[in-house]
Write a protein that binds this DNA or RNA. Structure first.
Lengths: 209, 209
DNA sequence: TAAAAACTTGACTAGTTGGTCAAATTTAGA
DNA sequence: TCTAAATTTGACCAACTAGTCAAGTTTTTA
């Protein structure tokens, strides 16, 4: 009955699947797919390994589900960039939101990074279809803003890559940033300071002159 | 005699250790430390697993050596940013070089990214000491440029993080970029186009107004 | 040319890992 | 309250993994 799409999940199922996915996110984002073990996921979920396999048929299925959840939460903010909006405000809002997601869900970011760095075997289809078509759509929006003189003439794709790179860096390379900045990176206001710097450089970088 | 610091390495040792480290870079950058196996490294190096262990005492030692080589090649370009130079030219040169390194050595970049994403257990000391002191030094240089009105007032640390994030993104997220851009990313001139866009946005972003 | 040293590898070991099984316990529903 | 269904887990299995060993081969040195 576990995982059956049409049967309503029980209270225990809902609770335990969530525990397992949270644990899986932590273990997979640190050790990668091959390096993670069912035993580590089980320990972190606070149940036996056999119990984990009662709720998910395989290690790969756990990984796949964790990855899917990550990605679903990522498309929406990007898809909300509107051609009807003010370019600088639209991009400011998106960059701010991405930085906030990096601060709040660093493991999700690292899970994604890990998957892409190993060649994205479980996501290639998604990257080539849903993500690509959304990027193409938003690149067209940015190009139109450039054509109207609202933004400086830059390649829209590289602008999008830079926004992703910079914002996700605060999640993916968290360990390095903390090592360099020390306690400063843990203090109140660091996130705002980060946002201010990132927004300033990127938005000034694309402001028409 | 393998790995002894004071004994001169033989021709066969030099050759095979290099083969092993090249293979290791490929396997570790894809599968991570835990996910990689000695068998995979051996296969890619074109020798038996037992022979790999003849040249390196352990899997961890291979990983450590591969990582060390990566990092040594990274400090030098950064350390060459000169307080006596023109700010825009100094940063332009550094960014261009980093993009070139991403294009030429994507596996080294992914190895580093992987290590940091798993908490950098083998590099924390390096990050907190050598890297931090170099970053502090260059941040001071950038701050002086800002004080002299040569650069817009941005936080030097976040500027450095943005440069790293953006340039390393082309190596670390290579798979995603190729999925989105398709053949365009493999064409002649893509690297120049990338450099043009990245330099334009960042350098315009920090140009004094 | 011969011997010592270095190099190479298949077989092996002990521990690990993904997944299965049967049985005990708990929960839900009648 | 009782029974059926769901949940839980220790023991187990087959395959995998890091590393060892002994023996054969190749290279180096005298």
């Amino acid at each position: 009955m576990a995982g059956t799409a049409n049967k309503k999940q029980s209270r225990i199922q809902t609770e335990n699947r969530s525990l397992i996915l949270t644990a899986a996110l932590n273990v997979f984002s640190t050790d990668g797919y091959r390096g993670a073990t069912l035993e580590r996921i089980a320990e972190r979920a606070g149940m036996s390994k056999t119990n984990v396999l009662y709720y998910f048929p395989s290690k790969e299925e756990i990984y796949h589900t964790a990855l899917e959840q990550t990605v679903e939460g990522w498309l929406e903010p990007f898809s909300e960039i509107s051609a009807q909006g003010d370019p600088v405000e639209e991009l400011r809002r998106y960059i701010s939101l991405k930085l906030q997601m990096s601060a709040e869900q660093p493991e999700a970011s690292r899970l994604f990074a890990n998957e892409v760095q190993r060649g994205a075997p479980l996501m290639l289809d998604f990257l080539k279809t849903r993500l690509k078509s959304l990027v193409d759509e938003k690149a067209a929006v940015i190009r139109e803003w450039i054509d109207q003189g609202k933004l400086a003439p830059v390649d829209p794709y590289h602008l999008i890559f830079m926004i992703w790179a910079t914002t996700q860096h605060y999640a993916d390379f968290d360990t390095q940033i903390v090592a360099i900045l020390g306690d400063q990176s843990k203090q109140k206001g660091f996130q705002e300071q980060t946002a201010h710097a990132v927004l300033s450089i990127i938005l000034n970088g694309i402001r028409p002159r």
